[in-house]
Design a protein around this nucleic acid. Structure first.
Lengths: 152, 152
DNA sequence: TTTACTTCCTACAGCGACTGGAGAAGCAAG
DNA sequence: CTTGCTTCTCCAGTCGCTGTAGGAAGTAAA
C-alpha cells in the first residue's frame, strides 16, 4: 500500500487527480512527499483521507466543515460533540432546502397545465409575468434550495 | 411610467442595480437607451421584463432558460409547447433534487446519534470514514441536489 | 457658488468547488 | 530513440451574481 502515484490514489479514492491537488492546496491534505523528480507520493492513510473527503462531499458538506471533521478525526479522545453539531447543522440546512424545493415544485406544478394553445395565453409565461398568479411567497426560494458551492 | 433611472427600476422590479447591468450584459435585456450623459433609462415594459426575470430566478430557472422564455413571451401566436416543456424539464430537475436531498437527509439522520463519547467512536466520523456503514448509494447526491449556479 | 451627498458610470475581483487546458518534463516499453 | 502516457505548475472558466474602486454627474442645502 506504499507509494502510490497521484493517478493511482485518484483511482483508489474516487477523487480526480486535479481535485487531489486542489485539496492539498486548500489545506485539506498535508503536502504530499515527493519523488526526486517532484512527483507526489501517497500511501494508504492518504487514500483513506481522500475517501473521507469524497464521502463527506457526496453528503454535501462544504470543504470548510470537512476540514474541521478531519481535524476531529485526527484527535481521538476528544468529545465528538463538535462533529455531531456540525452534522446536525448540515441536516437542518438539508431539511430547509427540501422544504424550499417542495414549495418550488408546487408552484411549478400549478403553472404547468398548458393546453397547447398559443403563448398569448400560455400559463407558464403568464405565471412568470404576473407574480400575483402565484399561490405562495417564493422570494429567494431557489436561493434557499441551493447547495453551497455545487453547480450542475 | 416613463424614463426611470436604473435605481428606480431596481426598486420597482426588486432586481439590484448591478444585477440589471449584468442582465443587460448577458443579453437578457435590450441595451437601455441613455441620457446625454450616458445614464440608462427604463420604462414600464423594461420593469415588467425585469420582474419576469426575477420571478423566474426565484423559481430556480437558469438564465439560459429565462432568455428562451422571454423570447417566447415576445412572440404571441406561437405555440406555448416549448415554454411548457421547459417548465416541465425544470420541474423534473426539482423533483430529482428533492429525492437526492431526502436520501441525504436519511443518511445524515442515521449518522447523527452520537452519545457524546470521544471521537474514536463517534458515529459521524466513523460513518464518513467508512462508506460501508452507509445504507444507500449516495455517490454525487449533493451534485444532483444542487441548484445550478446558486450559491448560498 | 460652493459644498455635500447621492446616484450613476465602467471595469474587475471574488464567491465555492472544482474542471479542463497549455506547455513542459518524467518515465516505461518497443 | 521514439512514442505515448502520466505528471508537473499555472491559469482560465463555470454560474449568477455581489461588492468594490475610482471617477463623473446629478440634486439640494448653505
Amino acid at each position: 500500500m506504499r507509494d502510490l502515484t497521484i493517478g493511482e490514489a485518484a483511482r483508489q479514492s474516487g477523487v480526480k487527480v486535479n481535485t487531489i491537488r486542489f485539496y492539498e492546496d486548500r489545506g485539506l491534505l498535508p503536502e504530499a512527499p515527493r519523488t526526486e523528480s517532484g512527483r507526489r507520493l501517497y500511501d494508504g492513510a492518504a487514500v483513506g483521507r481522500l475517501a473521507f473527503i469524497r464521502h463527506a462531499r457526496d453528503l454535501g458538506f462544504p470543504l470548510e466543515d470537512i476540514a474541521d471533521l478531519l481535524a476531529l478525526q485526527g484527535q481521538p479522545g476528544t468529545s465528538c460533540a463538535p462533529a455531531d453539531s456540525l452534522a446536525r447543522r448540515h441536516l437542518a440546512s438539508v431539511e430547509g432546502r427540501i422544504a424550499a424545493l417542495t414549495a418550488l415544485k408546487g408552484e411549478l406544478t400549478r403553472m404547468i397545465a398548458c393546453d397547447g394553445s398559443d403563448t398569448a395565453h400560455c400559463r407558464v409565461i403568464e405565471s412568470l409575468a404576473d407574480h400575483a398568479l402565484c399561490a405562495g411567497d417564493h422570494a429567494r426560494l431557489a436561493e434557499v434550495a441551493a447547495v453551497p458551492g455545487v453547480s450542475d
